[in-house]
């Protein structure tokens, strides 16, 4: 039985599929988040050096990982949309951007709040924090370009090109910032100082998994709205159950 993958690449069928999938991502995300926090706060031992402040790592590291990967996935969808002209891929890229930007913001916020007790300053020009800030600018540039073009087709393709150019630049920016940081300050400041206790790793992975599931759930929900907005003139939208109420 050959699975017809392309069946779900049509916005109409994907709309239904996404609708069914959202609870399967949303609830496990919440549960895993609670488990992760429980392990992180009750099971994981107090750190010798930073006592309780290090517990921010369970939020900061997943958020940073998410913000980076979501940008790459967004660029991937954008490239797909640009090459194969599949509207759904561009819609997915558009749906991913705000979530990615929020993860970048949370990563910066938690990084700053962690930096204060550890290094005594709200903002430290550490290579990773600086690259995260630039990544946030890239997200905002993508969202701004997408929002400022009325015609959805041109908006998709223009922002797709920007996302691709941006993703090519991410490694270059990271290495130049890292080089710049080591020149000026010497990156003696390490994030993951102490070796990770087993409970810390469990907590980290649980929160990371929760963040991934959350990101998927929110993106699917947002992409459904985008599909509705884009396909409002089509037949299948008018026959939707939601339209009947």
């Amino acid at each position: 039985m050959a699975i017809n993958w392309f069946k779900y690449s049509a916005p109409s069928t994907f709309y239904g599929l996404a609708g069914k999938l959202i609870p399967f991502f949303a609830w496990p995300a919440a549960i895993l988040f609670v488990i992760g926090l429980y392990i992180g706060f009750f099971v994981a031992p107090t750190d010798a050096v930073q006592s309780e402040a290090y517990r921010i790592i369970f939020l900061h590291v997943p958020a940073s990982i998410l913000s980076m990967f979501i940008y790459l996935i967004m660029a991937g969808y954008a490239a797909l949309g640009l090459i194969f002209n599949t509207r759904l891929s561009s819609m997915m890229a558009q749906a991913l951007a705000p979530t990615g930007a929020l993860f970048a913001f949370v990563s910066l916020w938690s990084g700053a709040l962690w930096g204060k007790p550890m290094w005594g300053a709200w903002w430290v020009w550490d290579a990773r924090l600086t690259s995260e800030l630039i990544l946030l600018f890239l997200y905002l540039g993508y969202i701004a370009l997408q929002a400022s073009i009325e015609d959805p087709r041109r908006a998709d393709r223009a922002s797709a090109l920007l996302a691709i150019v941006g993703s090519v630049n991410v490694p270059i920016i990271y290495f130049s910032v890292k080089w710049w940081n080591t020149l000026h300050q010497g990156s003696t400041i390490k994030f993951t100082g102490t070796s990770m206790h087993i409970a810390m790793q469990q907590a980290m992975f649980a929160v990371l998994a929760a963040c991934w599931l959350y990101a998927i759930a929110v993106t699917l929900a947002r992409v459904r709205s985008i599909i509705l907005e884009r396909e409002r003139n089509t037949q299948w939208v008018s026959e939707l159950r939601e339209m009947k109420q």
């Binding site: 630039i134 600018f137 890239l138 905002l140 540039g141 701004a144 370009l145 400022s148 920007l162 150019v165 941006g166 630049n169 270059i172 920016i173 130049s176 910032v177 080089w179 710049w180």
Partner: peptide, 17 residues
């Protein structure tokens, strides 16, 4: 303004070096 918002982050390596 939009051009600057899009382009400045990409020019940071040039600024650094």
């Amino acid at each position: 303004v939009l051009v600057s918002l899009l382009v400045l982050p990409l020019c940071i390596p040039v600024l650094i070096f």
